[in-house]
Design a protein around this nucleic acid. Structure first.
Lengths: 210, 210, 210, 210
DNA sequence: GATGAATGAGTGTTCATTCAT
DNA sequence: AATGAATGAACACTCATTCAT
């Protein structure tokens, strides 16, 4: 049997050009959601931004609306993880890891505000056919679980005091996301300086009340 | 000229039945958004839930989609304010007011989870024709501003240490909202117990690092 | 048998107040058509302009859309006839009557531009259920017939030369109506001065070519 | 890159089939307006007549109602110009040109009564959002201006006497259009014979009163 | 593999009319 | 006699998806 001339990437047996097209569409989808909001995002707006002549192309490359936005979410999360992950791992103490988590998240937002905004819109707006916001479960819990894990270990190591890890993790994640939202509405805000201040808040919150 | 037999309420010269219908539609809209998500909410879904024969009825009572959802937002915010306001005013110190703010917000969410969920979806999903999420600005800043004011006064009174009021306010609001979101996804969570724990977190965060 | 307390006018057994309401609605309809055009004229626009609280009132006083606009047409034609008729009758020769017809028509238009505009829009736009513009037939032929009659008699009296009455009548009527239309689009035009010039044209056209 | 297999016409980068569909829809629109009148013309009536499965197809090929009817007007005017133009240019004197204008206009109407009728309805019925019948301005003034120009030149050449060009032009145009209207209502009329008689009228009207 | 064309259900909104009171 | 409320069909238009080529 001959090997196919078209090289196939590791992603579900797709060719390189196929993968490139998908990436192009995903990028256009991110930008469109960021600009128009998820409810106002349609295939035709995405196709237009991607420079495609018809919406049929999108359906050709993605099985449906759900698959496209799943890929969008995955893409943004992957980018965020690549940006944030190393900085957390590089930190020595759990307290330092917590600070790195908060600050690097805000740095990522500052660098890719559209990505983060689109992510939030899609996660909140997407539901499966049982009306359960299924994408949200995966993503939100994944992000939260990582934080919980960090807090758990820090507690065990005696670095944090008086912390209920899950409550704290949910609060931190919400604080980070809301900071972006606040930033989008009041453009004067400097996200980077917010990072260290936000980190300060939760640094203090994880100390004993003394 | 005799006084009209139809009694007119204080709301913009509308009759009682008119006001009742509007309230009925607003209620149905809240429930529909909470269940299906804002992007999947249509007039026909709302009409169906409200037991109306056609979507035309909704257009008959509301000038447009925007007016309906403006009223939804206003209704939920009014309810929240009535619930939360007195508890904050009743607290004596600013530190106590902060705790009351957090706890009563979570209590409100526990009591009317659909209201709060719908509110968040609409605020995030609604944009004006310049793609600016205009409802969000009004509401979000209003809620944030109230918190900032409380923190400012507490700082002046020497009750809080090391606080940058706006950063802190944004964080608190985000933590509260995300707690609801987390609660919706993982139904086991007890919102009321979360309230005091969340209050603890920000109580500690507003103390001096010692 | 007792006489009804409500006085009844000669118009199909309607009371005075009824007739007043109808007149009020007809007036509002004329203005609305003149301003928005016949295709954009709806009962709600008319009701609004007439100061009525609901469109139901219009349906209450008029059996349907057709009856309302029939009355509008009749009203405008009656007004025009009252304005134009005496001036024609007062003229001594048929040539003078023709001039009087043209000039007084343009004077009427100058005085009630909305009426004439609305009339034209409705006549052109209205069809019965067989798609025949039925109102138009009645009105247009009535107006044309009067002109034809005048030209016929003038011909018999030897005042006009080389005239095919119907062709001429249609041309005159069209010239008059188009002058109004032209006036509406280019507001600088002085309708009154146009009247004598238009009369000159057809005065010459009815002379022998010699 | 290879040249696309789909051939593209010169009209705004549209393909042949696209252009064909548009023409088909425009044709159906003309017929529908001629039969039902402009106010009673809807996308669904047009789609039905064009043999299309849904009104969505029309929106697919035309950006909106306005674009469709703009194209209808342009199509009819183009056809009329192609029909009328050469006959006017072929005439040697301005007096002959005037006769050619009137007669060829009526010949066109006799050949395409639906086109002309539809044109008149759309022009009269269409307004922009300031209630200005904008299409009318362009078309009516264009047609009038051509006539005015002819009369001006004829005056300068000493062919016409005692003529106020604009008044005369408006009268001629109105006479022509009204003749069509009259013809539609009373089908016995022979438009072609009307043409020479109408030309006679304005031929006489442009001679000196002697 | 790629695409332009087509589909049909769905969107919010307006319409003239009816009806119970 | 008069009216506010309600109706349901129709409106122009957009949607994600399918399909023949």
């Amino acid at each position: 049997m001959l090997v196919s001339a078209k090289r196939v990437s590791e992603h579900g047996g797709r060719t390189f050009t196929e993968e490139a097209r998908r990436a192009q569409i995903v990028r256009a989808a991110i930008d469109t959601v960021a600009e128009h909001g998820y409810p106002n995002t349609s295939f035709s707006k995405i196709a237009q931004r991607a420079g495609l002549s018809s919406t049929g192309m999108i359906s050709y490359y993605f099985a449906g609306k759900a698959e496209l936005f799943d890929e969008v979410v995955a893409t943004v999360l992957r980018a965020a993880e690549e940006f944030v992950g190393p900085r957390i791992q590089h930190a020595q103490t759990y307290r330092a890891k917590l600070r790195a988590y908060i600050e690097s998240n805000l740095d990522f937002m500052a660098k890719y505000p559209g990505h983060t905004l689109a992510l939030a819109e899609i996660i909140i707006g997407t539901r499966d056919r049982d009306n359960v916001p299924v994408g949200a479960i995966n993503q939100a819990t994944a992000s939260i679980d990582a934080l919980v894990d960090c807090l758990d270990k820090g507690l065990a190591a005696g670095e944090f005091a008086d912390v209920e890890p899950r409550v704290m993790a949910v609060a931190i994640r919400g604080a980070i996301d809301n900071t972006l939202r606040h930033h989008m509405l009041t453009p004067g805000v400097d996200l980077e300086s917010y990072g260290s201040k936000l980190a300060d808040i939760f640094d203090r919150a994880t100390r004993s009340a003394s």
